[in-house]
């Protein structure tokens, strides 16, 4: 890593002067006031990067994830299926390491996302109902950085990770990248299935996590 020092682990409070713009660039957690003084905006440890002439403040305890930025993979629940648009409630951040998915944190409060029909899959789509249904748990990528998010599920690993049978309510298991089948009654339904859906325990883990965090 770069030559950064925590300057004896100095704990700084919001507003305390920690430098001037002539000397350092403001990094994460630091702002510049009207007179050109650098000040921390959160309670945290002061980090001085002499190589990049940057000071930053690392918050000691992060209680909420910052809202997702462009290009992040998120977990959501389908709340409305329209003929041109899928509305999604975004709940958590998902990271995929070497094909293994995991939830890395929950977002604070409710974030809304929408998948336009053009971003569902790389093919001609006649009916969005053949790709998503109400209540499906999905993994999608954000295409912007502010609250009503535009989402995409065009990649193979994105799409439905957990869905329930329309006839009997039992969980569906993936059959192909477009079809899921009920584990109880054998009913087959069409979905844009994520390659992560078959990943052992991931879908069940998500369901359980949503239940214990009172999000489902």
């Amino acid at each position: 890593m770069s030559s950064s020092s925590t300057e004896g682990s100095r704990l700084v409070a919001p507003g305390e002067p920690i430098g001037v713009v002539e000397e350092f660039n403001p990094g994460e957690g630091v702002y510049v006031d009207e007179s050109g003084l650098l000040r921390p905006e959160v309670m945290g440890l002061l980090r001085v990067d002499a190589l990049r002439h940057t000071v930053s403040v690392a918050p000691l305890r992060i209680r909420y994830l910052p809202p997702p930025r462009h290009g992040e993979v998120v977990l959501g629940i389908v709340t409305n299926v329209r003929h041109d648009l899928i509305i999604v409630e975004i709940h958590a951040k998902v990271s995929i390491m070497k094909g293994v998915p995991s939830i890395t944190g929950e977002y604070k409060g409710k974030l809304t996302g929408a998948i336009p029909i053009s971003q569902i899959a790389d093919e001609r789509i006649d009916d969005t109902y053949n790709y998503f249904r109400l209540g499906d748990l999905i993994v999608a990528r954000t295409l912007n950085s502010t609250n009503p998010y535009t989402l995409s599920t065009r990649e193979p690993q994105l799409g439905v990770v957990y869905a329930e049978c329309a006839k009997c309510g039992a969980p569906l298991k993936p059959v192909s990248n477009r079809v899921m089948q009920c584990t109880r009654c054998g009913n087959r339904e069409r979905r844009k299935v994520s390659t992560l859906a078959g990943h052992r325990g991931f879908a069940e883990g998500i369901k359980w996590w949503l239940l214990v965090t009172h999000r489902l």
């Binding site: 409070a13 919001p14 507003g15 957690g29 702002y31 006031d33 000040r39 905006e41 959160v42 309670m43 918050p59 305890r61 992060i62 209680r63 909420y64």
Partner: peptide
């Protein structure tokens, strides 16, 4: 606010 980690100019 400081405890919540919300960015603020000063206390």
């Amino acid at each position: 606010l400081a405890d919540a980690g919300i960015p603020m100019k000063a206390l």
